[in-house]
């Protein structure tokens, strides 16, 4: 598949802080990537570097297999970083016209994109009169102007109210469904889980995981159980049962991690045969959040 962005051994140091540590990545056309990491993990710095606003300390990155220079490549990219930055005294239309001038494209798509983000009615109001949600939507319209090869979004729902978050997510989902490659940084896991099919987990500038979202979330799950009596005996016997990988006890609940596909009813049957009466049995699939917390521990 076509490479859109390749990052090799990228490093960024701010004084003694190693914000991006030997990061390598490959972004391929047609996928939706999520960069996950706690605040201050180096997500925004990485995006800043590939977007030409932060200088790298060492390492390399190439756009479109290095066929064009970074600033030429950025004309084919749509990007939103942290907060929407526009000229406060210009209207939405004027701001977008300026972006078209910079990207060297025609202004014919402005109306269409403003309609996409529901700002068409307010197109002639100056940017400074917009609410944060509207500003963020204008930023998305601006990023879409050139029908970009890749859309880069850095925490696009940060600071928005639930209504605004919902609107932005719907817009992103729609764009993703149209086949646009998206690189999406967030610390909100359900957001990434809902939108992305690839995930990259970063902490302290180090890449911890890089792979499909369904791979990270599909393990065989775990069982939560409680017994009123013979708890110690159960704990001793459990590891020898079929399909159990490990056992631990958390807040008075026994947690058995599975390495085979075992259903809750099969397991219950087995325990009854062995003479254990359960007061609580739940089978869970770990979600991205639990996996993420395990990874970034």
């Amino acid at each position: 598949m076509e490479n859109i962005l390749t990052i090799t051994n990228l490093n960024k140091k701010f004084g003694t802080v190693h914000a991006v540590n030997n990061l390598s990545l490959n972004i391929k056309k047609g996928n939706v990537y999520g960069i996950l990491g706690p605040n201050g993990s180096g997500k925004s710095t990485t995006l800043g570097i590939i977007l030409n606003v932060v200088n790298k300390t060492s390492g390399d990155f190439t756009w479109f297999d290095g066929s064009i220079s970074t600033h030429e490549a950025l004309k084919k990219v749509g990007a939103i970083i942290e907060r929407p930055n526009f000229y406060p005294y210009m209207t939405a239309v004027q701001n977008l016209e300026l972006v078209c001038k910079i990207k060297n494209i025609s202004t014919s798509k402005i109306d269409e994109k403003l309609k996409t983000v529901n700002l068409y009615e307010r197109r002639n109001s100056s940017f400074q009169t917009y609410s944060l949600g509207m500003k963020q939507r204008l930023a998305i319209a601006s990023a879409l102007l050139n029908d970009p090869e890749i859309l880069i979004l850095d925490e696009p729902t940060n600071g928005l109210d639930p209504q605004g978050i919902h609107e932005i997510r719907e817009i992103i989902k729609r764009i993703a469904s149209e086949g646009t490659t998206i690189l999406f940084a967030s610390h909100l896991l359900d957001e990434v889980e809902k939108i992305c099919n690839y995930v990259i987990v970063i902490r302290n500038g180090i890449k911890l995981y890089d792979g499909r979202v369904d791979e990270i979330t599909t393990s065989h799950g775990l069982l939560e159980l409680k017994v009123n009596a013979k708890e110690q005996e159960l704990l001793e016997q459990l590891p020898s049962f079929y399909g159990i990988e490990s056992v631990k006890i958390e807040d008075g609940v026994i947690i058995a991690i599975l390495n085979q596909d075992v259903s809750a009813s099969e397991f219950n049957q087995l325990l009854i045969e062995k003479g254990f009466a359960l007061s609580h049995l739940v089978k869970r699939k770990p979600n991205l959040e639990q996996q993420f917390l395990t990874l970034t521990k």
């Binding site: 977007l51 030409n52 220079s69 970074t70 600033h71 950025l74 990219v77 930055n85 526009f86 910079i102």
Partner: peptide, 17 residues
């Protein structure tokens, strides 16, 4: 102060330009 310099660069203007 408006951070539009940053946005200009992201939109594809080089620092030299």
């Amino acid at each position: 102060s408006n951070k539009t310099l940053k946005q200009n660069l992201i939109d594809g203007l080089s620092k030299k330009e």
